[in-house]
Write a protein that binds this DNA or RNA. Structure first.
Lengths: 154, 154
DNA sequence: CCACCTATATATAAGGC
DNA sequence: TGCCTTATATATAGGTG
């Protein structure tokens, strides 16, 4: 072992959260991170007794899935939640989900400036938050806490 | 800053990948890791241009989802795969998925040896599902509202 | 494309407020 | 109940075989 201890590999470097242009590099990253994502999911299942279904569609349309106990069972439970009838509202709200991702990207791209904060200004956003959604809010809030930190100067 | 530099926090400790007994601790971990999982997913979406849908069912049956561009679109593509009509095979393959998780546990326990890994080869599976609706996005929306307020500076 | 390495970037388990 | 800090455990980008 260790015959010459020559430095193989230059170590990890920071990569901005934006689309990777090099297709070959993008594929490598996709492969590694998909594996990591599935591993994280399985750990969450085991540690907390949660059930999870993940469906990933690569740029080339190939589909990969992860499911515990199975993709079916989890998706099925999701469908049986109580509402098959809210499809009309769904569309509008999907935009919110997309926004979440875009905001992540924006903050990442311009975190050095404090100008972004202006752009995020909500006009008259206001909504009653009942206890049921409190947990969800907490989760999402946590998600951007560090981004906020970066924006305010990392 | 750093008036006393007293050591607050003992730092992260290793936690075995097995069910967390303490319900309160389990909840904390579930919350943190779910957030982390969603973040990883969003990064994968951005970095590689992938589309992802994640459905998580907590031990208490509460459902959380992540989707880009939306849970619907991804699940839909999943369903429309040319082979989603082979529901018969699904069952058999589900076993492999379960195995995947179990093997990860073993890996964690015996990672020092390099012989177990050969078995995990997740690829595309299919599932007999009809259609998918969503409503958790409502919560996402609420979350975003709160997040924006936070970013704006409380 | 897979397995393995190294150097770093990130995620997070514990505690303190 | 939440948020923040700190010390570590993990995940991974870049390279090699």
């Amino acid at each position: 072992m260790d015959l010459t201890r020559k430095k193989r590999g230059t170590g990890r470097k920071k990569v901005p959260i934006e689309k990777i242009e090099s297709s070959s590099q993008r594929y490598v990253t996709f492969s590694k991170r998909r594996t990591g994502l599935f591993k994280k999911a399985s750990e969450l299942c085991i540690l907390c007794g949660a059930d999870i279904a993940i469906i990933v569609s690569s740029p080339s349309q190939k589909i990969y899935t992860f499911g515990h106990p199975s993709v079916d069972s989890v998706v099925d439970r999701f469908l049986n939640q109580d509402d098959h009838h809210m499809s009309a509202l769904g569309h509008d709200q999907q935009q919110q989900q997309i926004q979440y991702i875009e905001i992540l990207g924006q903050l990442e791209a311009e975190k050095k400036r404090g100008e972004i904060i202006e752009q995020l200004k909500p006009s008259g956003w206001d909504a009653p938050i009942d206890s049921l959604q409190l947990q969800e809010l907490q989760q999402m809030k946590q998600a951007l806490v560090e981004l906020k930190k970066k924006v305010l100067g990392e």
